[in-house]
Design a protein around this nucleic acid. Structure first.
Ligand SMILES: Cc1cn([C@H]2C[C@H](O)[C@@H](COP(=O)(O)OP(=O)(O)OP(=O)(O)O)O2)c(=O)[nH]c1=O
Ligand SMILES: [Mg+2]
Length: 478
DNA sequence: AAAAATCAGTAGC
DNA sequence: ATATGGCTACTGATTTTT
């Protein structure tokens, strides 16, 4: 056995990556971020104490307002299947149960089982590096339709506890079990008393058992007053476990104060580094730095940070479920080439594939976007609006090819555009007008469309709800 | 000056 | 021997249009 040691794992990964174009690009990005952080610290240093104090006061006022709106009345559950894709494969091929395995291919892994994780094999890691960490690793190609089918079975269980559950991906969902708790409190009385559990815990334990009975797969869950906290909690007793965070302000503050910021959904690698430079690694360190943050980040981000520091989050799941798809795309990675003929052909093929996906969903779009990635991993997007929405592969292909030609022509002849990825995306979507169907259908569809677009125009757009969620869920800066 | 369009970047699964 | 995915949604800065 080897590879259990974190230092050794990192060493192998570094050796395997070193010198590659991927690694070079990553380092370049890191340098850029370092520069940005340095500038941030510079502006931070120049701030006068008076200015800082003023900013702090302002932020505290915002915090007070947020605190006043704290809602502890809902019981939110986040359920997350354990090593989902891998677990499905292990269930269906029992010989995989006690060996290190991962789902994915030579260039990328979707996930790995817990045996493989001991070797440092993780989601997002290329298969060829994973094999170096763990030579015995078994790679299983993904079966998306199978995972989708399993996901539907799990959904049936969710529906029992909350008909308005919000599916966030194939393997995770938020549920609001408040109503279920009220309606079924008596039925769980004996159960929860025997196990010395709260009602919510007993219900969630039963739900996880039902998932296991229905799928032979285990799930983990977090129970808390809002989605942000519930999501953190579902990770704490993984796999096949659950964590209950009582819905009182003291318990929540104790919990959040010692929580690493990186555990919060929406804080990724970049934001973590930025905050770390300011001495913030725990959520509890946000509030003492309100003033500093105010002078360095956007209003949106500030709002987000304040809410994190108070342990606040979304309590209304309808904010997740409402809303249509905004874009649809297809992309492909290949061994780098600058052959114009090949690249053009690929764009045409992608457009045909995209047409198929759009047709399945009955979507048409108005904005065509071409995505390119050079052999040095530099990403670019170029877009062009159509006169009217379509999913016609010829139209989309023609526009996408035009965008590609424009990019190729910008390159000098001695250094032609050399790509490793091409993608085509359609956005500004609407529903396809049904053709050749009964009049009834056509008319009702037209009506539907009209109301939707009227809604968009009048109320500063249909995103009002969605947008407020967005500010919650995500945080970016510059 | 406001609104729309465009693009890079961050993030999550 | 070489080699790092595909999809969606959002923010924020900048440019262009109205
Ligand atoms: C993180 C990640 C997940 N996935 C897929 C595969 C995962 O099985 C599925 C769910 O993601 P996760 O819930 O993040 O991971 P997991 O279920 O495999 O493992 P865990 O026990 O830690 O929850 O999404 C990707 O395809 N790419 C990724 O980068
Ligand atoms: Mg999972």
């Amino acid at each position: 056995m080897q590879g259990f040691d974190a230092a050794k794992i990192n060493e192998i990964i570094r050796k395997a990556s070193e010198g590659s174009r991927f690694y070079q690009h990553k380092q370049q990005a890191q340098q850029k971020l370092d520069a940005k952080i340095k500038e941030m610290l510079h502006t931070a240093q120049q701030m006068s104490p008076q200015l800082l104090e003023k900013a702090t006061k302002k932020m505290e006022a915002v915090a007070l307002e947020c605190e006043a709106g704290r809602d502890l009345s809902r019981t939110i559950v986040h359920v997350d299947m354990d090593m989902f894709y891998a677990a499905v494969e292990m269930r269906d091929q029992p010989n995989l149960k006690d060996v290190p395995m991962a789902v994915g291919g030579n260039s990328m892994l979707s996930t790995s089982n817990y045996i493989a994780r001991k070797f440092g094999v993780r989601a997002g890691m290329p298969g060829f590096i994973a094999r170096q960490l763990c030579p015995a690793l078994v790679l299983v190609p993904p079966n998306f339709s199978k995972y989708k089918a399993v996901s539907r079975v799990v959904e049936q269980v969710f529906a029992i506890y909350d008909p308005n559950y919000a599916m966030m991906s194939l393997d995770e969902a938020y549920l609001d079990i408040t109503d279920y708790m009220e309606a079924n409190a008596d039925a769980y009385q004996a159960k929860s008393e025997v196990d010395n559990e709260t009602l919510a815990e007993a219900i969630v334990r039963e739900m996880r058992l039902k998932i296991q009975e229905a799928t032979q797969l285990t799930a983990s869950a977090g129970i808390a007053a809002n989605t942000r906290l519930a999501k953190v909690c579902s990770d704490l007793n993984k796999p096949n476990g659950q964590y209950y965070l009582p819905s009182d302000t003291r318990a929540i503050m104790d919990f959040i104060n010692k929580l690493p910021i990186r555990k919060i959904s929406g804080i990724g690698n970049v934001t973590e580094q930025q905050l770390k430079a300011l001495g913030i690694t725990l959520c509890g360190q946000i509030r003492p730095n309100y003033g500093l943050l105010r002078l360095l980040f956007s209003d949106c981000s500030l709002d987000y940070f304040v809410r994190i520091s108070l342990g606040l989050g979304e309590t209304d799941l309808s904010n997740y479920t409402s809303g249509e798809q905004k874009s649809i795309s297809t992309e492909t990675t290949f061994t780098g080439t600058s052959c114009k003929q090949k690249l053009m052909q690929m764009v045409s093929d992608l457009s045909i594939e995209l047409h198929g996906d759009m047709k399945k969903k009955g979507l048409v779009g108005k904005l065509v976007t071409l995505k390119t990635k050079t052999v040095n991993f530099v990403l670019k997007t170029r877009s062009m609006a159509l006169g009217e929405p379509t999913s016609d592969p010829e139209v989309m292909g023609k526009v996408a090819r035009k965008l590609l030609i424009a990019e190729m022509e910008k390159c000098p002849v001695d250094e032609p555009l050399s790509l490793r990825l091409l993608g085509v995306r359609m956005s500004n979507l609407s529903e396809e007008a049904s053709s050749g169907r009964a009049k009834q259908t056509t008319i009702s569809k037209m009506f539907e469309k009209q109301t939707v677009s009227a809604g968009r125009e009048s109320s500063s757009n249909y995103c009002l709800v969605t947008e407020s969620v967005a500010r919650e869920v995500q945080a970016f800066h510059d």
